[in-house]
Design a protein around this nucleic acid. Structure first.
Lengths: 171, 171
DNA sequence: CTAGTTGTGTTGAACGTTCAATCATGGGTA
DNA sequence: TACCCATGATTGAACGTTCAACACAACTAG
């Protein structure tokens, strides 16, 4: 309200920009819904819960402190706490308090959770291929990834790969 | 569960594909959140409510049947019904039953709603420019739009512009 | 040894979306 | 007239996310 200044120079989008913007908005609404639907239907998981399991599975001990997991899965501490409670009720994850640091809680992927992921991942990758990876030409996919990276950098400069000492997987 | 077939040919993503996929997922989680946050903060609207107002404003009479509006704003009838109730409570939209077809309900943008949109749109466009349109080179933006269109076609072939007699703006 | 303070995690209520009824109106058909 | 079904729209409960408040341990300083 108070920001309303009629002389603000906010040039409108031209035709080609508007076209790209609308397509992007369309993808932003449809793609997450489609991926969510596949996971919900085939695995009874939502995208966030799936990502939580993936992050744990990609960790050496299959366990992570809640805060690190929240960061890795790109969710708030609260969101993670609720999600882990649901995953715990299903037996796929368990909370363990680190014996050394009693105020730190680790989420640990159970064997059941690992198997769940082994069952679930192929179907999800298949859907990812069907809707994106195989639907686009290699050049299109690379350009999409490039644009996405740039947008991410604009949203949060600290996420920019070039601007951080990203811990490189030492394999 | 029953779908688990270890011989299913689901090739994993190679390094460059995985890289693009992760960037895309990042954008898919961060960008809608960022746009939503701007609208919520500056206008007290969420993205869907904003789109509802926009769709009405772009219509000659500033009114549309609920079902047409739901389609235009890409939401379910139920979602629209709830959203219109909220917008109605704020005085930005009103429901009017078409005098001819009494079982049809139109949502109409009030003058208050029109002014609200006039106040809100520039800030939203500014944010869209900051995070996407101006953050990308023209080539990047065009490529992003192109990829998004292709993905949309993969999700719902009936949405594909090339496959439909899309009403082209006759200007 | 308290008193603040920070870091880490959880909780409950509020809010928005979804899902499965449900309501209301308008033809059809007999 | 009565009945049935299709269409358009709404409703209420269930679910997940957010937000603000809280709990708890560990550090720091007086």
């Amino acid at each position: 309200m108070a920001k309303r200044r009629t002389h603000d120079p906010v040039p409108w989008l031209d035709e080609s920009q508007l076209d790209a913007w609308k397509s992007l908005m369309g993808m932003l609404t449809m793609l997450p819904a489609a991926l969510d639907a596949q996971l919900k239907r085939d695995a009874g998981l939502n995208t966030f819960e799936y990502h939580v399991l993936v992050q744990l599975a990609e960790t050496p001990d299959r366990r992570l402190p809640m805060s690190a997991l929240a960061c890795a899965a790109q969710g708030s501490p609260s969101r993670l706490s609720h999600a882990v409670r649901r995953l715990e009720n299903s037996g796929w994850v368990e909370r363990v308090t680190s014996s050394e640091e009693r105020h730190r809680v680790d989420a640990r992927l159970t064997d059941l959770g690992w198997n769940k992921l082994v069952d679930t991942a192929p179907g999800h990758v298949r859907e990812a291929r069907r809707l994106v990876v195989d639907a686009l030409s290699p050049d299109q996919l690379a350009a999409l990834g490039d644009a996405a990276r740039t947008v991410l950098a604009a949203i949060d400069p600290s996420t920019a790969p070039s601007a951080r000492g990203e811990t490189v997987d030492p394999s």
